[in-house]
Structure formats: structure tokens, C-alpha cells
């Protein structure tokens, strides 16, 4: 059964147990039991942080949502939850479409392996078969623009070169939903142009983009909607043209 590409988030709450150094030690844990410390929450020795509170978002094909907010406001947590890595404590996340999360450049990157090997590895993680990767290898290699460097270990790459590799490999999958966390700003102007083209391509195919950034110009360029997060509480989704009003609020 096919379905329109969509993201539907209802009353999403994510609580984070933060396990301090203490909580990770078995000795402390056992000692607490033997001395008859209070069981229940205190046993876990973890402080709970509520990263997102009752967040609601509805996105449909063609929507490009920008996330703004201070550090620690829950932008990355929301992206990770949308990628399927974090399970909700309350509420629901419902995503129709193939998800590509570009949250961390180093995902599945093995520094001692060559660029080609890393493209293969990342492609496998993204859900491509070995055959599919081989058939797209030329195109991906071309897109990275790294040429002969692809047969060299990734540890010899600069940060910008790594960004090219990661972006090329991750967007090689025809993703319907692209989740991005800031780092698109890496890379030189040539790469920025290429990345720009590829993002527009995705938008044209009427996928969904969720982009967290502090760069307002970048958000104006790619997004048509914007949401502000503050201490895990989200503002309503507003039109990008009202960005300055949202910031002033």
C-alpha cells in the first residue's frame, strides 16, 4: 500500500535519563541496594531531563520546515526522534517515506577505510543493497568531486572533504524525508552549490525537509515553514515570511 509522504507528530514527549558517572558504576548501584536505599526512580540514579514536551507537528509532501531555538532547546532531539532512533515516552510519531538523517558527519565513517569503502558502508546502513550501491557508485563518486582521493583513507580528508563524502553518500538514497542538522554550512562554495542543487531536487520531488539551523538566511533559502523550540516546547508552525515576528515573540 502506498501513502503520501507525510510526518505526523502528536503530543510527543521525550524524557532523557541522564546517567551520570555515578549511575554507570555497578558498585554504586549495588551499594544503594544493600544499604536499603529508596528503590524506584532513585535506584536508577538518573536525573530525568524532559527534552521535548507535548510537541505537535503535521508536515505534508513539499513542506520544508526550519527549526530554530537556542542550544539545548530540543532541535536535535526532535530530529533524532524523527529518524526513529529515540522512542517517544508519550505521544506518537508517524512517518511515511524513506528517511535520510544527516545529523552527524561521522555516521558509519571508518577513518582508516577508503572513500569508496565508506560510501559502500554508508549505503548499506541507509538500506541499499550491495548491487544498488555498485550501480550508483559512479554517480556518487562524481557528485563528491573527490576524484582520486576516493581511493585514499578518509582520515586523510579535511573536514570539508568529509562533508562532501557524507552528503553524497547519504543523499544517494532517494529519500523522501531529509533530516539535517546545521552542518551543511561546511564545505566550500562549489560544494555548497552542489548541495543546494540536490536539496532543491528533493524539494521538487515533493519530499519533506526538516532543517535545524541558527543561520536565518539559510532557513529563508530552503524552508517555507518554521518552528521555534524553547526548552522543549514548540511554537506553532508558521510561515517562513513571519520568521522575524516569531523571533521577536
Amino acid at each position: 500500500m502506498t501513502h503520501q509522504v507525510s510526518i505526523s507528530v502528536a503530543d510527543l514527549t521525550i524524557r532523557f535519563p541522564v546517567y551520570g558517572v555515578d549511575a554507570k558504576s555497578l558498585k554504586k548501584h549495588l551499594a544503594r541496594v544493600t544499604v536499603g536505599g529508596r528503590l524506584g526512580l532513585s535506584l536508577a540514579g538518573a536525573t530525568e531531563v524532559t527534552a521535548l514536551t507535548k510537541l505537535n507537528v503535521e508536515l505534508r509532501a513539499g513542506d520544508r520546515l526550519g527549526l530554530i531555538g537556542h542550544n539545548g532547546s530540543g532541535k536535535t532531539t526532535l530530529l533524532r526522534a524523527l529518524s526513529g532512533a529515540y522512542e517517544p515516552d508519550d505521544g506518537m510519531i508517524d512517518v511515511h517515506g524513506r528517511i535520510a538523517a544527516l545529523l552527524d558527519l561521522s555516521l558509519g565513517i571508518d577513518p582508516s577505510a577508503t572513500g569508496y569503502d565508506n560510501i559502500r558502508l554508508r549505503g548499506r546502513i541507509a538500506g541499499l543493497s550491495a548491487k544498488e550501491i555498485d550501480s550508483r557508485m559512479d554517480e556518487i563518486a562524481d557528485f563528491t568531486g573527490l576524484g582520486p582521493f576516493l581511493s585514499m583513507p578518509v582520515k586523510t580528508y579535511s573536514a570539508g572533504m568529509q562533508a562532501r563524502l557524507a552528503f553524497a553518500a547519504a543523499t544517494a538514497v532517494e529519500a523522501d524525508v531529509l533530516l539535517m542538522d546545521e552542518w551543511i554550512a561546511v564545505g566550500d562554495s562549489d560544494f555548497q552549490k552542489l548541495a543546494h542543487k540536490r536539496l532543491l531536487n528533493l524539494v521538487e520531488r515533493a519530499g519533506i525537509l526538516v532543517l535545524a539551523s541558527h543561520d536565518l538566511d539559510l532557513l529563508r533559502l530552503y524552508c517555507n515553514k518554521v518552528m521555534r523550540l524553547e526548552g522543549g516546547v514548540a511554537s506553532p508552525v508558521t510561515d517562513i515570511r513571519k520568521l522575524s515576528e516569531l523571533l521577536a515573540a
Binding site: H3, Q4, V5, A81, P88, M92, H96, G97
Partner: peptide, 13 residues
């Protein structure tokens, strides 16, 4: 754009 891929995540039930 139509898709067959679907991911559903919910709280404890």
C-alpha cells in the same frame, strides 16, 4: 509523492 515505507513510534502501551 507516494511511498510504501512507514515508520510508527509511540509511547509505552
Amino acid at each position: 509523492m507516494d511511498t510504501a515505507t512507514h515508520m510508527l513510534r509511540t509511547g509505552r502501551r
